[in-house]
Design a binder for these strands. Structure first.
Lengths: 219, 219
DNA sequence: CGGAGGGTCAATCAAAAGGTTGACCCCGGG
DNA sequence: CCCGGGGTCAACCTTTTGATTGACCCTCCG
């Protein structure tokens, strides 16, 4: 049986070097190519396809500073003709990260602090078409299925965004042409869903779960 | 001339492997040991010292999930008898990270997305007792010197960080062992310096100016 | 048709945050 | 030596926020 051919996608040269060193030490795994962002990954895939060299697993970081991010890249890869499984290997295990990765079609979700042996097993499992999830990722998905009623409505997300810009309840009310009382009602719902009890904690929680962009970030 | 002996401190096996692979490829650098957190780093230093094997540079990550974090570890190392220079190699370049690292006695501050050649040069520079700073870190420190009046004090930055995690004034007070009154005093100063009038706006302003990392991001 | 869920608003009370003033300590530099 | 900046704390008061309850109006869907 030939090696499992892996495409590394990570914007940090250090991390790529680490994965390369780690994975090439294992029998049965070889690095087909590397890419620093999502676009480069797609380029590599098509380049390798033209050479007749398949990729068995894409090892993808979610957080990438510039260019196409991991979620977009995963979604794009899954739209290819014969898409290889995408195994997410990232630093954070937040709800939004996990959910958006799974939604985008990832075959697995592992954390970078996992021991090498676990990463090795995950690569083989993904190559074999199996799904591999870090414990927290698995737990989250279970919880989502059993208890789907906890997601924020578009309106709540909108208020959350305004909240994060530093506006007061009154200012938010004026901004969206509702009363301050209604703003309060929404905030209570938001706090409940996020499991917090004040606005700054809501911003922190929503930012961490990538429900909203970090305050003050353009876009 | 013998190799520059480096102690790697990072909680991610992948990153350690990457740095090891990257650095050992350069002439004149060898890896003395590795550690997954601050405590382990101190242990390694004392172990190597007993063997008569010095360490020329400690390459330290700031963000480490469990155990002693990078700042505490740096401070602890600088208190040793013949402390090796500590070169911070981290993901973020916020004011808070930079300032606390420099205060703790770091000899340099580099970002993980720096090209390998820059990291190599930084290691040699640190080993030679020089100070190496990423552009943003250098700019921040220059600004501190030329214009200290309008910038936040370390204490204020510290409170700002806690603020951004969603803590109440009382919770912040307990966290840093001061009274709630003092927290309020600091916040008033912070609002004045940032030109805002409430805590959420302060978080937004501080995040936008990269004084603090976005709320909820690991650190 | 009749809920269910989302959005709107109000009244009320309790808690937290914000603004102001004044005070004390410590340290480093003119 | 004294002054200023940073850090600490207190008392007081105003404003904002949070919690609770109850209500009305939509629209979508079984």
């Amino acid at each position: 049986m030939t090696d499992v051919r892996v495409l590394l996608v990570d914007d940090h040269p250090v991390v790529r070097a680490g994965l390369r060193a780690m994975l090439t030490e294992f029998d049965g795994i070889s690095i087909a190519a590397e890419a620093a962002d999502g676009k480069a990954a797609l380029n590599e895939l098509s380049r390798l396809a033209m050479l007749g060299e398949g990729v068995d697993v894409v090892l993808m970081d979610l957080q990438m500073g510039a260019g196409m991010d991991g979620v977009a890249a995963t979604a794009a890869i899954r739209k290819l003709a014969a898409p290889p499984p995408v195994l997410i290997l990232t630093t954070y295990d937040t709800d939004a990260d996990i959910l958006s990765a799974v939604e985008a079609g990832a075959s697995g979700y592992m954390l970078k602090d996992a021991p090498p042996e676990q990463i090795r097993q995950a690569v083989f499992a993904a190559a074999a078409g199996e799904t591999v999830l870090a414990p927290r990722a698995a737990a989250l998905l279970m919880k989502r299925i059993t208890n789907p009623g906890t997601s924020l409505t578009p309106r709540e997300v909108q208020l959350l965004e305004l909240l994060a810009t530093g506006l007061s309840n009154r200012a938010i009310a004026k901004q969206v042409f509702i009363s301050e009382a209604t703003v309060k009602t929404h905030l209570v719902h938001i706090y409940g869903k996020l499991g917090v009890d004040n606005r700054t904690a809501a911003i922190a929680a929503a930012t961490r779960r990538r429900i909203i962009r970090p305050p003050g970030q353009a876009g």
